[in-house]
Design a protein around this nucleic acid. Structure first.
Length: 267
DNA sequence: ATGCCATGCTCCGCATGA
């Protein structure tokens, strides 16, 4: 069984204690991190490696930054989404992970990506245009990856509220870049290529969130959003056995505003 | 109606986030 999780940590340097604690208790095999907010050189690698993880990261000073942690052997395939310019923001890293043979099952290769989709607010700015273009690029790449017909998981902070069931107050969010029709349409187009939302495949109850704003007591009032997703190729979805949202880390001291989403694959 | 909170920078207020 391979346990895979995604978590926007909102600064790995500030959050390293929380991250280490959660790695020890949740014991994921593969973790996608977003908003590490530092360069690769600044990453607290030793403490993470001490828990048995290999690290692949794409960082930048101050903002963004993504990483993959894996207890299994991992080789980096891409450090950016195809189709971008030279002044790339650090929002994508993709790797091949070797899943060894176990009791009757043959060894497999799992492709995994950690992505941090642009927020896009405010909607009348270039940031919104950048988000829409980034989503188009993601769909193109996701389509190409499906042609490989391999187990694949695209995990991360998508900054997309897929449906009205994924936000505490849909009306209040209609004009936000996380919920606008153009954004939801692009997210659906991505899903319709043939991806499965690992959480929704096994959990249908509405109002299950992965993010709660730091402000206005959003956590205490459960005013949240479901914007962190694990998307599976058919070859991975066929082997999905469990998934969930781990609310634990959001309730602790100095938390990230996001909490981990996880799934288990019987590869 | 607005800001609330948190992070990083280089600063002691501003940009960014969702």
């Amino acid at each position: 069984m391979v346990k895979i999780a995604t978590w926007n940590v909102n600064s790995i340097k500030v959050r390293i204690r929380n991250v280490l604690e959660w790695l020890r208790e949740a014991k994921p095999d593969i973790v996608m991190l977003q908003e590490i907010k530092c360069t690769v050189a600044e990453l607290p690698c030793l403490e993470i490696e001490d828990l048995g993880y290999n690290i692949a990261a794409v960082g930048q000073k101050s903002y963004n930054g993504v990483a993959l942690l894996s207890r299994l052997p991992m080789t980096v395939e891409r450090e950016a989404l195809p189709g971008g310019s030279d002044d790339e923001q650090a929002r994508y890293v993709e790797a091949l992970i070797e899943v060894p043979a176990t009791n009757g099952k043959r060894a497999r290769v799992l492709r995994a990506a950690s992505l941090y989709l642009p927020n896009g607010n405010p909607v009348d700015s270039l940031k919104y245009d950048y988000k829409l273009v980034w989503m188009d690029r993601l769909r193109q790449h996701a389509r190409d990856l499906l042609e490989l017909e391999e187990p694949l998981i695209l995990g991360g902070d998508y900054n997309v509220i897929p449906t009205e069931d994924d936000v505490y107050d849909p009306v209040a969010w209609v004009d936000d870049a996380l919920f606008r029709p153009e954004v939801r349409r692009r997210y659906r187009a991505l899903i319709y290529l043939g991806y499965v939302d690992a959480f929704r495949a096994l959990n249908q109850e509405p109002h299950q969130y992965t993010f709660w704003d730091y402000q206005a007591g959003a956590w205490q009032r459960d005013f949240g959003l479901r914007i962190d997703h694990l998307l599976l190729s058919p070859q991975a979805a066929d082997r999905l056995v469990a998934s969930g949202i781990d609310r634990g880390p959001r309730g602790r001291d100095r938390p990230s505003d996001h909490t981990p989403v996880w799934c288990e694959l019987d590869l």
